[in-house]
């Protein structure tokens, strides 16, 4: 829809797919307006419910296929938290599971043609990352008190270097939510934009469109992998930050 070969050349609009539009007409987007964001987030919730609630309704000792998937997801995140953040991180399991499921379904559902990718928006990933940042910082101060600040005071380094390192650590600590959110959003947006660009080529080339289509298939495969890997990375980084908050003395 974004590409027309008219007059002077190809017009490719890779960004059109990210536009937030009201579902029921109008062009003012107020905070309560049901938009395509609402639609696809609702679909995400639905997918989570289908997988984790309907999929496990059998409560079978020998699991069905969907129950297996649900249990594998559960075990995967559970194991990850235990490995990275330690046993006391398991208290925050539902929270991390929520993040993981939202991101993984947001990413994969966004790969459906004509879908809207909720996780490709800075507003969404930024809020996710800030939630993690704020939660982790609060947990750090509540659990460790002022000694949480020793996270920035690298006792392994020579004394003269420590103030410099402290400044660097402090900066890197505050950059965390930025990289955390932009990584996810950038990966999602980049993949979709590239697919859109190739789709634009395909639209313009006529019969030669075979090549861009093959390229799209290949990139699509890559994107499916990226969708899962980025969800995994977001979650595991959350676990790493949580570990820093629970055990700041490393």
């Amino acid at each position: 829809m974004a590409t027309e070969a008219e007059g002077g050349g190809i017009k490719i609009d890779p960004m059109g797919q990210f536009v937030v539009e009201p579902l029921f007409g109008g062009d003012h987007v107020a905070w309560y307006t049901p938009t395509n964001v609402t639609l696809w987030m609702a679909i995400t919730v639905l997918a989570v419910i289908v997988l984790l609630v309907l999929g496990t309704r059998g409560r079978a000792i020998v699991p069905s296929r969907s129950q297996s998937v649900a249990e594998l997801t559960y075990g995967f995140i559970h194991q990850m938290i235990e490995d990275v953040a330690g046993k006391d991180g398991l208290k925050y399991f539902p929270y991390i599971m929520t993040l993981f499921l939202f991101i993984v379904f947001g990413n994969t559902l966004g790969l459906l043609p004509t879908a809207f990718t909720t996780t490709s928006h800075l507003a969404v990933t930024g809020v996710l990352a800030l939630l993690v940042f704020v939660t982790v910082t609060v947990i750090g101060f509540v659990k460790n008190g002022a000694s949480f600040l020793s996270l920035f005071w690298v006792s392994a380094a020579p004394l003269a270097l420590r103030p410099v390192l402290a400044v660097i650590e402090l900066i890197s600590y505050f950059v965390r939510p930025v990289s955390h959110s932009v990584r996810l959003m950038g990966n999602m947006m980049a993949g979709h934009a590239v697919i859109k660009v190739f789709a634009g080529f395909a639209g313009a080339l006529g019969l030669g469109a075979v090549f861009p289509v093959v390229a799209i298939v290949a990139i699509y495969g890559l994107e499916v992998m990226v969708a899962f890997v980025q969800a995994y990375v977001f979650t595991i980084l959350t676990c790493v930050y949580l570990k820093d908050a629970l055990h700041p003395h490393h």
């Binding site: 490995d83 990289s179 932009v182 990584r183 950038g186 980049a190 890997v229 595991i236 980084l237």
Partner: peptide
């Protein structure tokens, strides 16, 4: 493998920037 993915994520984040 977790360390591998974290490392890849950090390297890739800068490219994404």
């Amino acid at each position: 493998t977790a360390t591998l993915f974290i490392g890849i994520a950090f390297a890739e984040a800068l490219g994404i920037f």
